[in-house]
Simulated scan of single mutants.
Amino acid sequence: MDFLKVFAVALVAFVQLFPSAIGASSWGYFGSDGPSHWADVSATCGMSSQSPINIIPTDTLMSSMDAFTLTKFDTTTGLSLNIVNNGHTGILLGQRSKCPGGGLTGDYNTAQLHFHWGKTDAEGSEHTVDGTRFPMEMHIVNYKSSYASVSDAAGHSDGLAVLGFFFEIGDTSHPGIQKIVDALSSITVSGSNTTVTAFNLNELLPSSFSEFYRYSGSLTTPTCNEVVTWSVFPQTIKITSTQMDVFRTLQSEEQNDDGNHNMFNNYRPVQAMGSRKLYANFNPNAGARPSVHLSLSLLALLSCILSRMF
């Protein structure tokens, strides 16, 4: 299958999964089209198992989930990549890879990856950790290989598995992100796309990502299907402020709060956790500072010992 056919198939699959993603839409991130109105677009967006969430490490339950084994993320063989400005984000399409493991049942095929970012480096991620936002979050969207397509998988409770990675500002960046940044100038206009020189997708990921949080949730854009098994990784990917600024040059059809069409703050506010459980395959509180109550107890014990000594 040549490149154009690969891209066409991937793009059709994406539109099927996100039916209002290309061109004009009735949802957005600002004003009357913003997240507080999404339930008017799709009733599912107002349900009780929505994403993203605020991850509270002290609320996690330990689980023995194994690490992911991302296949074909370390090769460029047979890999054609295309990046698209869909008016809401930048999406990388064309991966022929899988993400088995991670405590998931069955294999999942990688469909696409995309980004959410803020107006400034102080915000942008969809998930938060103890209320803290990161400047950008990357989502790798995978669908269960036992289903016929991405759109088919979106209709099943175990259909999708999304891997979420946070970006953190640093003096140097991870190798792969510059290759994405270099392509952004070619997709400034909403609806545009360009070919990206194939590179190992591992170059976009942290050097180690065996630890993750896990919960059941939804897509973070309409139609907000509650069919996503989320894995959110605590180890960050480095990016520079200069590189972040390039993401903000993408244009949306939606007018932002500044009165222009620069794409930023394309993240959904955190949703209520409700009765859902948050798991981790590591101890997120290892090495944490003692609580105030524990510290006071230790001080009281020390005071008692000293009083007996003197």
Rank of each mutant, 00 (worst) to 15 (best):
G259I: 06
N202I: 13
L201F: 15
S185T: 11
R268Q: 09
T194N: 08
V228F: 00
S252T: 10
S207H: 15
F166A: 09
T197N: 10
S185C: 11
I237R: 08
F165L: 05
G176M: 12
N260G: 04
D257L: 13
W230T: 01
R268M: 05
Y213T: 12
T197P: 02
F165A: 04
Q243C: 07
F199S: 10
E254Q: 14
T197C: 06
E226F: 00
G191R: 02
E226N: 08
S208V: 15
A198S: 15
V189K: 11
P234T: 02
M244G: 14
L205W: 15
L204Q: 13
R248T: 07
A183P: 01
T242E: 15
G176A: 12
I169Q: 02
D245S: 15
Q178F: 05
N200I: 05
P206T: 10
C224V: 09
V228Q: 02
E211K: 15
P175Y: 10
D182H: 13
K238W: 04
G191S: 10
T236R: 11
E168P: 01
G259H: 07
T242P: 06
G170H: 07
L250W: 02
P175G: 12
V228A: 00
S185P: 03
T221E: 10
A198P: 06
S207Q: 15
Q178N: 12
P206F: 09
A198D: 09
T223E: 08
